[in-house]
Design a protein around this nucleic acid. Structure first.
Lengths: 136, 136
DNA sequence: TTAAGTGCAAATTATTTGCAGTAAG
DNA sequence: CTTACTGCAAATAATTTGCACTTAA
């Protein structure tokens, strides 16, 4: 049962609902919750779901989703990129032990003052990553 | 003229002052100012200074500096890593057009509220990167 | 001396790309 | 039909590593 949601999500960005894209979208937003994946983890998850999508396509598709504004790329540890289905500007928790990324409650963070953008520049986004480590 | 500063900096972290390390330290903190480099840019700069250090050693040395707490790794765009000689927890400007990283004035930013760390976790650091893009 | 550091070239990891085949509009 | 999408395998980019050689202590 392919959720209508996934198809609408793709349609909203003028992306053709190919079998692979729908499968990926399904995993990403099928239940309406936000998700944080790497190309690799998404690849695994879609395979578990029984669909076959090549890893290259996962990469290309995530890139396409980002270009279309459906997802947001979050860089956290230099090696891999994470993709977040929540495109609203919000802080993240990065769990050092499991190397996973989750949303941090945005309402519990307040930045009351921000440096001014230098001459001729403007602020594109403010990326906040709160690194968590296991307490002792 | 090899500054005393570079040698002291290495000594403070119990790192042997080899020719290569001194050369790199020289570029990094020779004038007492903070610097933000990638392995590649540091490699270029040290070459301009007339010293010969292999790229692998630049990578290994930056890693050693980080392990020793002399520098801090900053991740910003997923591909390369930046190394910052300012190890104090502070925000960064990332200039999208030139792909460079600079310090943002810490005193002009105020985070008055931060999400609590989840059960059993503690906050290691709060990484803030302010992305700048050329104003139109 | 001798353990730590260095340089190369080869290995790894994450990601992108070229191109022939497949499918959506 | 026709153009966009997909899959594979090869290409690339950033970084690490194995190992013989060098050097600081």
């Amino acid at each position: 049962m392919t959720s209508k949601r996934a198809n609408q999500w793709l349609a909203s960005a003028d992306l053709r609902p190919t079998r692979q894209r729908v499968a990926l979208a399904e995993v990403l937003i099928g239940d309406g919750k936000h998700r944080h994946v790497t190309a690799e983890t998404l690849f695994e998850q879609v395979k578990l779901g029984g669909e076959k999508v090549s890893l290259a396509t996962v990469y290309n598709t995530l890139r396409a989703f980002c270009d279309a504004g459906l997802t947001q790329e979050v860089t956290v540890d230099g090696s891999k990129s994470y993709f977040d289905t929540n495109t609203y500007d919000h802080p993240h928790f990065y769990w050092d032990d499991t190397q996973t990324l989750t949303d941090a409650p945005a309402d519990q963070m307040k930045i009351t003052q921000l440096p001014d953008a230098p001459e001729g520049m403007e602020i594109g986004s403010v990326d906040v990553v709160i690194r968590l480590r296991k307490k002792n």
